[in-house]
Design a binder for these strands. Structure first.
Lengths: 220, 220
DNA sequence: AGCAAGACTGAATGATCATTCATTCTTGAT
DNA sequence: ATCAAGAATGAATGATCATTCAGTCTTGCT
């Protein structure tokens, strides 16, 4: 594991061979959170160690405890970051003034939720890793549900506006929003666990079908 | 942690105070799997230890390695058990001859998937704990997807039969089955992570809405 | 009753991990 | 150029965990 030239006057332990660098606290924190995300995606939450994370970040083990006090705190902050990133993206689309047509707005939301490339897969891994522990860890439950609630309200409001505009009968916006959110979560899960059977293209088509059945005048 | 009366001639280390019992291999295996399920639900997959599981089962630490060789194997077999139990239940409903009406069959399926009491919550915890690790562990992916595939086929066949019977237009059974399965998974997730916002009653109503929009002649 | 087979136990072992902290290094102010 | 502040390092520490195995106990057979 150790480098061959350990005794030589080699200042660098970083992979790039650079000297020790001093960077602002916020930057180091983000660097460590990013490394944590990659480690969870690649090795699974239960296999993540501090040594693994700091090596991935190209830093020493001490630095993590300097900026995050403990492993538990680092994991907590990583979840918070991923959760907020995802939900802020949704809310931006639902509140943004750039799109005026409600149907287009729905489309943009769906694209965001089921789009993107490899990055998204990493994030999904992290997402579900924490979900898996949420049943036993109230802290995780709280982080997720706090952020989730606002997005759920915005989605409900969007659905309500669409129902009004299309004069759809017998459709409850709250019920439908719950269903749509659950559907997206379930599709994410399918993409993660059975990527062979569920492609991103098909997932998008399934979600679009759901919306079309509810809002035929707005989708397609 | 150790009992106060350790030096005394106390034969029993079990909580019930019974003598050491010899039981068939299959029974011990099940006993350990059940204990593992409870431990995962209560402490989370990443916090489960062999000591914890064997104490929960009322057995010694050695016994787990006797019947399961390793912790990894015990966890793998526990996932297999939960996955098979869930999917066998679904398949039984979809293949069973007891129900002839297709609408009733759908109802029974929904009841199974979103019904039951506390037990179900324990199983859900286990389910998602493994999903969380599945991104990094091909073994888990394989176990789940193998069992999943058959249930997905049966569901598709049931939907196809309903579509034929109801002469529904523009409904693809495969697409709809994917959507329904994802919806159920997503609702399970909601029940686990945000039980305050999503009750079992509401989850059932949401799933029923989905089916009603697709098969209005069969549901309600 | 006596005995062999093997189920069962739990202290011991060695490995791994989170966390600490004495030390080294960098930066910016004087 | 010098120095103080504090960012960064990584070997050392102590705790925890999976796994082992020498020995104990139970059961069923003779």
């Amino acid at each position: 594991m150790s480098d061959a030239s350990a005794t030589v006057l080699d200042v660098a332990s970083c992979s790039t061979g650079k000297r020790r660098q001093i960077r602002p606290k916020a930057e180091r924190r983000q660097q460590l959170i990013d490394a944590t995300i990659r480690c969870i995606a690649q090795h699974g939450l239960s296999a993540v160690t501090m040594q693994m994370v700091t090596r991935e970040a190209g830093l020493s083990v001490g630095i993590a405890n300097l900026h995050f006090q403990s492993k538990e705190n680092l994991l907590r902050e990583t979840l918070r970051y991923v959760a907020e990133e995802y939900h802020n993206g949704q809310i931006e689309i639902m509140e943004g003034a750039a799109i005026t047509d409600l149907g287009d707005r729905l489309d943009a939301l769906l694209d965001f939720q089921l789009g993107r490339g490899v990055t998204q897969r990493q994030k999904m891994s992290v997402w579900f890793a924490y979900y898996g522990e949420a049943g036993a860890r109230p802290v995780y439950q709280k982080i997720v549900s706090t952020v989730d609630r606002l997005a759920a309200q915005k989605l409900e409001a969007l659905f309500a506006a669409i129902i009004r505009e299309g004069d759809y009968q017998d459709v409850d916006p709250r019920e439908l929003a719950t269903g749509y959110s659950a559907l997206i979560d379930g599709l994410h899960l399918g993409l993660l666990v059975t990527p062979r059977e569920l492609t991103k293209r098909r997932a998008r088509s399934v979600a679009r079908d759901f919306l079309r059945r509810a809002f035929p005048k707005h989708i397609y």
